[in-house]
């Protein structure tokens, strides 16, 4: 086993075990922190694949931004009413979940087995940042700008919806 294989297994474990814990955990704040660990694992996998820029984008956006906002949202909601509801998952729901998960896993396994994987020779990955930047500002400049505009619209829309209307006061 070489270095990157070991790291791959470590990162896979960091991704999957917290993911399982997310499903099993009943405390919503703990759950958020398991999600944090899982997202970190995904970022690690990206970096192992040589996509360091993408990996740290994952850290910046998901961990630094979205996770903080999720925690923020949880903390601002009423602790007693929302967070302390435990043991609501019934046996039937649990069974359904297990069945669906097993089916999905089977399907994925089949796909993995049936695909003819080509093994590429390990290469030294070139720096991605410059290429990502160039691609965004040349070939993909229109989609890039469109996404920016879309995000701006989303931002305005969110602000509008969250706003209390004057007649309510």
């Amino acid at each position: 086993m070489d270095w990157s294989t070991i790291m791959w297994w470590v990162m896979a474990a960091v991704t999957v075990i917290p993911a399982v814990m997310i499903v099993l955990s009943k405390d919503i704040v703990r759950l958020a922190f398991w999600l944090l660990a899982s997202l970190t694992g995904v970022a690690g996998l990206y970096i192992l694949l040589g996509a360091d820029f993408l990996g740290f984008t994952q850290v910046l956006v998901y961990i630094g931004g979205i996770m903080v906002l999720i925690l923020f949202g949880i903390m601002m909601t009423n602790r007693d009413a929302v967070l302390m509801r435990r043991g609501e998952t019934t046996g039937g729901a649990m069974l359904t979940g297990v069945v669906i998960a097993a089916a999905t896993a089977l399907a994925l396994l089949k796909v993995v087995k049936d695909t003819k994987w080509k093994e590429a020779a390990p290469v030294e990955m070139p720096a991605t940042t410059a290429r990502v930047g160039e691609a965004l500002l040349t070939d993909y400049v229109l989609p890039f700008e469109l996404v920016s505009v879309l995000l701006l619209i989303v931002l305005c829309g969110a602000a509008y919806i969250a706003r209390r209307r004057p007649e309510e006061t």
């Binding site: 601002m76 909601t77 969250a162 706003r163 209390r164 006061t169």
Partner: peptide, 8 residues
């Protein structure tokens, strides 16, 4: 209650 968004 001047804020537009209210929390708990």
């Amino acid at each position: 209650p001047t804020s537009d968004v209210r929390s708990e």
